[in-house]
Structures are given as C-alpha cells and as structure tokens.
Design a protein around this nucleic acid. Sequence first.
DNA 1: CTGCAACTTGAAGTTCACTTCAGCTCAAGG
DNA 2: CCTTGAGCTGAAGTGAACTTCAAGTTGCAG
Lengths: 147, 147
Amino acid sequence: METLTIGDLAARSGVAPSALRFYEREGLIHASRTSGNQRRYERAELRRVAFIKIAQQVGVSLDEIRAALESLPENRTPTKADWSRLSARWRYRLEERIAVLERLRDQLTGCIGCGCLSLQRCKLVNPSDQLAGRGAGPQMIINPPQD
Amino acid sequence: METLTIGDLAARSGVAPSALRFYEREGLIHASRTSGNQRRYERAELRRVAFIKIAQQVGVSLDEIRAALESLPENRTPTKADWSRLSARWRYRLEERIAVLERLRDQLTGCIGCGCLSLQRCKLVNPSDQLAGRGAGPQMIINPPQD
DNA sequence: CTGCAACTTGAAGTTCACTTCAGCTCAAGG
DNA sequence: CCTTGAGCTGAAGTGAACTTCAAGTTGCAG
C-alpha cells in the first residue's frame, strides 16, 4: 500500500472523510488524484493531519494552523526538524493554556470551602469589589497579580 | 447601588450586554424589570455570571452549565455551600482537561527532537503503524496505555 | 424639562468547523 | 461482467455562542 484512500486516511487519523475534504478545500492538506478523480494521499499527509488534531487540542484555529503548515517546505516532504520547529511553536501556547487551567483549578480548590468562585478576590476578603477597576472578568485567574 | 443595570453587570463581569440578554433567553441568569422594562440585576447574578465564565474555561457547554445552575435552590440566594458543590462538580472535568494537555505537552516536548508529533507511538519506533488497530487518532495522548 | 446615552425588542446575521444531501461515478471482489 | 461499497461534487444545513440591526423607549444629569 503506497498511498492512502480518503477512507484509509480517515480510519487512520480518526478524522471523518468529510472533514478531510474540508481541510483540502481550506488548503490544510493535499491529495493527488487517480485517473478516476479519487483522492490518494501520501503517507506524509497522516502527519499533517496529526499536527492539525494536536494543534486543535491546544486551541489553535484552523486559520492559524494553515499559516503554520504553509511555513513547511513545499518542494520536499517535511523532515523531523521541520515538524520540530512547528511543534515548538505551539508549546508556549500550550504551556500558557495549562497555566490558566491550573490557576483556575487552584482557585477552585482553594475556594471550594468558601464558594466564592474567584470572581474577583474572594468576596469574603473583598466584599466591595475593589478589583473591579482592573478590567473585566475574573481577574485573579485570567490575569493574576504578580506578587 | 442596590441592583445593577445590564451595562453595570457587563462592565463588572466582562460579558457583553448582548451576551447577558442571550444568557437570560437561555435561562442561565435572571433579572427583574423596572417600571420602564429595563433589566435590573441582583448582585448575586454577578456570581452566576462568574460561574458561567469559569465553566466555559473548563470547556463546559452552556447547556450543561444551565443544568448545573438549575440545581441551585430557586427560593433563596445560593449560599457558599451551594457554589462549593457546583465548583466541586467541575473540578474533575478540569483535572482531566489539564491532564490531557499535560500529556500533550510532554509528548510534544519529548518529540521536539524527533518530530514525530506523537501520531501514534513515534514512527521512528513504530514505523508500521502497529497501534492503528487500537482506535483512531493520536492514541498516546487521548488514551495513553496504562503502564 | 430636555437631551442623550443607555436601554428595549425580535429577527436576522456571523464565525467556526464541519456534516449532510442528491445525484452521480469509480474500483475491485466474486 | 456485474454488483456494491467507496468516492466525487457543489450547495445547503448544523449547532454553538453570540453579535448586529433597526426602530423605538427610558432614565438621569444638567
């Protein structure tokens, strides 16, 4: 098996055929065609699809993913180094996302006794919304004060 | 200031007025009305909105958030204990989400040298897709083998 | 009392990421 | 050769979570 049909790629990647066609229309992946106009995928496309899935988990939009994929060399199959470069690019993003969620978790844990939900600093501690001027939303989580 | 206008609540919570009206239509928050039909919010609504925002960060849909909010007592302002109970409910969800992202980060870190993107186990190690039968998608991240 | 920013409504529009559909063609096992 | 599951297309539909719009009303500072 040298190339993959859309069904094969779908089964392997866990992405529906309709989504793969959609990705192609959006310029995220590429396929050659048989004489009968059916798509045939290089095995390397599997990695592209994996990259897309992973980036989505990190919270990156398809638009940004396309931009990243466009930075891959066009004239050759991407090397490990190419993929490493892209992966590294999302890492910071991922770290940030994790940090936000961990902060949220810690607040939630700390506040499970008081029920304050970290709206601004605990209402118990800060009953008159003194942080309200600092910007909208749950400040302690999104944008914690640097102590 | 006893109650809040929609503008006040929007400014305080960081949620647009249009979104607050939408939340009301969807039964997530409640408001009384002035004689002139304008919304007036109890301060307790601020906490409801905070809860909504936090739950969204955790990745909970508005439908599920509504269900959670419906479990709050209707006849009285929710107590700290009420909010604690709800917060606790999302904690597990949050932990899971964090775990997935951390697994992803570790894989990405580990693979930054090899560029394998954790599609299934490293291609370098597993060049013939031996994990493919285990289900679709990046198995190592979504559903890691229990060692 | 006046002016004007802030509020009201229902309906329609937007973005994202796909999925579904209808009507057709292709490819490969028996 | 024939059948049948897999694949093709463009267009339209979906659902989540809002936003925008138009046309009118309210509430408070001056």
